[in-house]
Nucleic acid binder design. Structure first.
Length: 137
DNA sequence: GCCAACGTTGGC
DNA sequence: GCCAACGTTGGC
């Protein structure tokens, strides 16, 4: 059971919009990076991912669940990239900010800090537990 | 196949 | 608005 983190600019696709889609979920499209694509292809149904707001907010606001495994991204004209469907699962009681992640030495190795431009990234079980704890879930 | 130029992401 | 990081493109 792997854990993940996906990023979105709230002005493009926000947590509230994700919640509005309910349990059926919505396609997570627009990934145009091969490292991110490989991560999408590793995701299994039922696995969880943190939902991170980049640019505005800069905080982890919720958890989504994978409801459909990778398939071709219809928004990609080249046909090379894939997407998955994710559904909102839980909102963090307290959003975990980028600043808070930076301050916690246990999270210093997170891809969020080390590879700040990667939009779909793995999270270790240890990191997952720490952030859930910080977020009150 | 190398590398400079350029574009994009995302934090500050 | 700036800039660092880094991915992509295109000339050679």
């Amino acid at each position: 059971m792997a854990y993940w983190l996906v990023k979105s600019e709230p002005s493009v696709w926000s947590w509230d919009q994700q919640v509005a889609k309910g349990a059926k979920g919505e396609a997570w499209t627009g990934v145009r990076n091969h490292t991110a694509k490989l991560n999408l292809m590793k995701m299994k149904t039922g696995e969880q991912a943190f939902f991170y707001h980049s640019n505005e907010g800069k905080e982890i606001v919720g958890i989504v669940k994978v409801v459909r495994e990778h398939y071709p991204d219809a928004s990609d004209e080249t046909g090379k990239f894939v997407c998955v469907d994710v559904a909102a699962f839980k909102r963090l009681k307290t959003p975990v900010t980028l600043l808070a992640v930076k301050k916690d030495k246990r999270l210093a190795e997170m891809a969020l800090l080390k590879q700040s431009r990667l939009s779909v990234q793995p999270v270790t079980a240890a990191e997952w537990t720490i952030i859930c704890d910080m977020g009150g879930v």
